[in-house]
């Protein structure tokens, strides 16, 4: 009888731990989604950005064009953010 009670308690605790760790994994996943995509976008924008500044210094007219080129990789981090939001809230 007593053993059975302990068993139920252990089972309940296990479920609780499982739920908590699932939540933790979600948080971890969401964090990684934003963090890693942020790094990725940063690396991609690094080269484009420096080239863009150089090009603008030579010819001011290309500013609009190079601004577009510079922000193209930024979509990666937006996707990361969306994934994180979906993970956490949906």
């Amino acid at each position: 009888m007593a053993a059975e009670l302990v068993g139920t308690e252990v089972a309940a605790q296990t479920v609780e731990i499982a739920i908590k760790s699932q939540l933790g994994m979600k948080a971890l996943g969401a964090g990684m989604a934003v963090g890693l995509t942020g790094i990725g976008a940063g690396i991609a924008e690094m080269a484009i950005g420096s080239a863009a500044v150089g090009a603008t210094a030579e010819n001011k007219d290309v500013f609009g064009l190079v601004l577009i080129l510079t922000v193209i990789p930024e979509t990666i981090v937006i996707f990361g953010l969306v994934v994180a939001l979906v993970l956490w809230f949906v």
């Binding site: 937006i78 996707f79 953010l81």
Partner: peptide
Amino acid sequence: ISHVLSYARIVAVGLS
């Protein structure tokens, strides 16, 4: 797909 999903930034940047 990517261009349509890109508009998700409206919400994502706003939420941040």
